[in-house]
C-alpha cells in the first residue's frame, strides 16, 4: 500500500531524513517510533505531498507522491500533530468544509459526516464551536477530518500527544478499530503506544531507520540474549559455579538480597534456548532452596534506549 524507497530530505545542509526505506501492507498499522526531531514528521509530510523529497521516491496506493500528488491526496487522510481545525467554526460546518475540499460526493456528504461523528463519538458536539472543545475533543475532530473521505491510508502524527490518560486509551482503541479497512501509519515517541497499537514498528533516529520489525521480534532481536532471574538460598559462589556448568549459560551476575543468606542471580543465556527447568533442577539437586525463578524480557523502552545510545556512541567516537 505504501512504499518508501531511499527517501532523503535536506533542509539546507541539514539532513532531516536519510535513505529511509520501508513498506506498509494493506490494513496494517505501522508505528513510527523515534525521539523528537528524528524525522518522523518530515517523512509523513513527504508521504502526504506536503513536502517534496530531496531524493528517493514514495508511492501510496501505487501513485508517486511527486508525479501524481492529487491521486495520493485523494487516498490519504492526514492528522498533523496539531489538529488542523478552524476555531471559529462549529464541528458540523468544519466537517462540511473538509468533506467538500476532500471531494466527498455531495449526495453522500451528510451521511459521511454523521458516520465519522459517530465513529469518533463527537455527535453531541455537532453545533459546538471548535474553540470551545477540549484538547481531546479537538483531536477527535482532527481524526474525523482525516476519516471523512474514507481514505485507504491514514497518516497520524502523534495522535495521542497532549491528551489525558483516559483520552489516550480511547484514541488508541479508536485507531486499533480502524485497522483492516485502513492502512495506518502512526508516529509517536511514546513506547508503550507502539506495542499496544501497532503490528510493525519502524524505529527512526536522527533521520535514519534503525530497525523495522514487529514489537515482539524487535525486543528479542535486540536483546541478543535472554535473561533468567532467580533467587536462591545458599552460598553465593557455589551456586554461581553450579549454574555456569549448565550448557547455554553465558553469564551470571549475583546480588545479595536483604534478609538471610539469599542471593539473586541474573543469568544470561543464549538466544531461543529455554533452560529454566535445567536451572531449577540444578539448584534443587545441589540442595539449595529455590525461592523464585522467571525470565526477564527487555521492554521496548530499553530496546529504544539502547538504539539511541548506540547511535550516540558511534557519533562520539
Amino acid at each position: 500500500m505504501i512504499e518508501v524507497d531511499h527517501l532523503t530530505k535536506r533542509f539546507g545542509s541539514v539532513k532531516a531524513i536519510e535513505n529511509v526505506t520501508f513498506q506498509v501492507e494493506k490494513g496494517e498499522i505501522l508505528g513510527f517510533l523515534g525521539p523528537n526531531g528524528a524525522g518522523k514528521t518530515t517523512t509523513m509530510r513527504i508521504l502526504t505531498c506536503f513536502l517534496p523529497a530531496t531524493e528517493g521516491t514514495a508511492r501510496v496506493a501505487g501513485f508517486d507522491v511527486f508525479d501524481a500528488p492529487m491521486e495520493v491526496k485523494r487516498r490519504i487522510g492526514y492528522l498533523p500533530e496539531n489538529p488542523p481545525v478552524y476555531n471559529e467554526l462549529t464541528v458540523d460546518s468544519y466537517l462540511d468544509f473538509v468533506a467538500k475540499i476532500k471531494g466527498v460526493d455531495p449526495k453522500e456528504r451528510k451521511k459521511r459526516i454523521e458516520e465519522v461523528k459517530n465513529r469518533v463519538s463527537i455527535k453531541e458536539y455537532s453545533g459546538t464551536l471548535i474553540k470551545n472543545l477540549s484538547k481531546g475533543y479537538k483531536q477527535r475532530v482532527g481524526l474525523a477530518q482525516a476519516l471523512i473521505h474514507d481514505p485507504q491510508v491514514l497518516i497520524l502524527d502523534e495522535p495521542t500527544v497532549g491528551l489525558d490518560p483516559n483520552q489516550i486509551i480511547e484514541v488508541r482503541q479508536l485507531i486499533k478499530g480502524l485497522s483492516g479497512n485502513h492502512t495506518i501509519i502512526l508516529s509517536t515517541h511514546i513506547l508503550p503506544e507502539v506495542s499496544m497499537t501497532c503490528q510493525r514498528v519502524v524505529i527512526i533516529s536522527k533521520g535514519k531507520i534503525a530497525a523495522v520489525d514487529t514489537p515482539e521480534n524487535l525486543t528479542r532481536q535486540l536483546q541478543g540474549a535472554e535473561r533468567v532471574y532467580l533467587e536462591v538460598k545458599g552460598p553465593e559462589a557455589m551456586v554461581k559455579t553450579r549454574i555456569k556448568e549448565i550448557e547455554g549459560v553465558l553469564r551470571v551476575d549475583s546480588n545479595k538480597l536483604d534478609g538471610d543468606e539469599a542471593f539473586s542471580f541474573s543469568v544470561e543465556t543464549e538466544l531461543k534456548k529455554d533452560i529454566r527447568s535445567r536451572i531449577a533442577k540444578k539448584v534443587v539437586e545441589n540442595g539449595y532452596d529455590l525461592l523464585e525463578l522467571r525470565t526477564l524480557s527487555m521492554s521496548l523502552e530499553e530496546v529504544f534506549l539502547q538504539l539511541t545510545t548506540k547511535e550516540e556512541e558511534v557519533r562520539g567516537q
Binding site: C49, K73, R74, P80, P84, Y86, I101, K102, G103
Partner: peptide, 9 residues
Amino acid sequence: TMELLMTSP
C-alpha cells in the same frame, strides 16, 4: 490549517 489545505485534493 495550511497543512490541511495543502494535503487535500
